[in-house]
Design a protein around this nucleic acid. Structure first.
Lengths: 208, 208
DNA sequence: GACTTTGTTTGACAGTTGTCAAGAAAATTC
DNA sequence: GAATTTTCTTGACAACTGTCAAACAAAGTC
């Protein structure tokens, strides 16, 4: 839903320009959102932390939800393919596991604000209906992502997944969310703990 | 942290009265918070949905965080012992499993707002440091709760848990959170799905 | 029954929020 | 290079926020 794009009589090159402006705004907004969270982030705060004025935000986005919604969808396109390379290039189960866990702890550490924001927005979507379609879409993407990994893992070990895709996603996501929440209090040990726990769990998700 | 209780020169009976008032305020606040979520709930909204005026809120709580903090701790005392009876009375693994799952789907359905609020607050705690100690405490309580169930389950099946307590909690919590988020969109099928998925997973958390 | 303590109401404050509109500036078109 | 369209700035608005304090009511104390 939302995010009006067409409706402007401008020439073709203008649409691209508008889209690029939108992306710039979204990137700036995501930075602020990641730091402050949904509840504490205002349009003015977003504008202040960017090179734009608060009026511009309203020129490119109908309202706040439109902006957030756009941000969420923009963000999704950058993250759900994170493990694709690992899945495609791994030639053994161990290689896949270490590659997967390496990338996962890496994004946990390097993109903490984005993950915090994601769990925040998913929680908000329980109260704000307008966010629900976007959140649902991302959840599906992430579920598919986990499923690709697990399928490949099963292939490489000569086994088959012993849980369905939604279950696998919920389990892995539970561990990852725990790590994201715990990372603030304990940034040193959390990545290793996550790795350890996923290593414990992964073999249990397949059966010979 | 927070929630000033002593510091009042009142007589003993007065403290109880104050505490009872606090509880009444907290219960009212929890109702509103559960419906609207943390971000959209203001002190005035809380007061409006109660028999009190917004001034009273400030008479019993130093500020907003103090109130929320109190609410969270009050809420926790009512929920982390939810499965104790089932754990103590079950005489077989099957009985324990069905009892546990029954209670879990029941609370999912009957106390949805509270669970939504919990996940919301946990997300907020990533951005609001003052909430962190309370959230951490509840998380520990819930972890212990899950661990009691899993231990008993292992006893009754003559096995031992194959994952540690934080892992078990993260896995079960992942499934439950998925159910809470999904419940809004699909209240009919979600409880059954949760039951099914937990039934798949539970046996995998123990080894002979 | 006067007096003090405790509890509550009410109204106000300063700040912030999302939203919008009028007009300046820049870009584009002819 | 004038006219027009697109982009941006600025300032304003109404509503809402957390907080507080002064006036008021109730209860308890001597």
């Amino acid at each position: 839903m939302a995010s009006t794009a067409e409706e402007r009589p401008a020439r073709v090159s203008g649409i691209d320009k508008i889209e690029r402006r939108r992306v710039a705004l979204a990137e700036s907004a995501l930075k602020t959102l990641g730091e402050l969270g949904y509840a504490r982030t205002s349009l003015r705060e977003i504008a202040n932390n960017s090179e734009f004025t608060h009026g511009v935000v309203h020129y490119y986005f109908r309202d706040k939800i439109d902006l957030i919604s756009y941000c969420v969808r923009y963000y999704k396109t950058k993250c759900a393919r994170r493990y694709d390379e690992v899945v495609e290039t791994a030639t053994s189960a161990a290689e896949l596991a270490t590659g997967f866990l390496g990338k996962m702890t890496q994004t946990l550490v390097e993109e903490t604000p984005m993950h915090k924001l994601w769990y925040d927005l998913r929680a908000q979507s329980m109260f704000e209906e307008q966010l629900r379609p976007d959140v649902e879409e991302i959840d599906k993407l992430l579920e598919a992502m986990i499923w690709r990994i697990l399928s490949r893992y099963a292939d490489l070990t000569g086994t088959t997944p012993s849980v369905d895709a939604p279950t696998a996603y919920a389990l892995v996501d539970g561990l990852f969310e725990q790590a994201v929440v715990g990372y603030a209090a304990n940034p040193d040990k959390t990545p290793a703990l996550l790795t350890d726990r996923l290593m414990q769990v992964l073999p249990k998700l397949v059966t010979a």
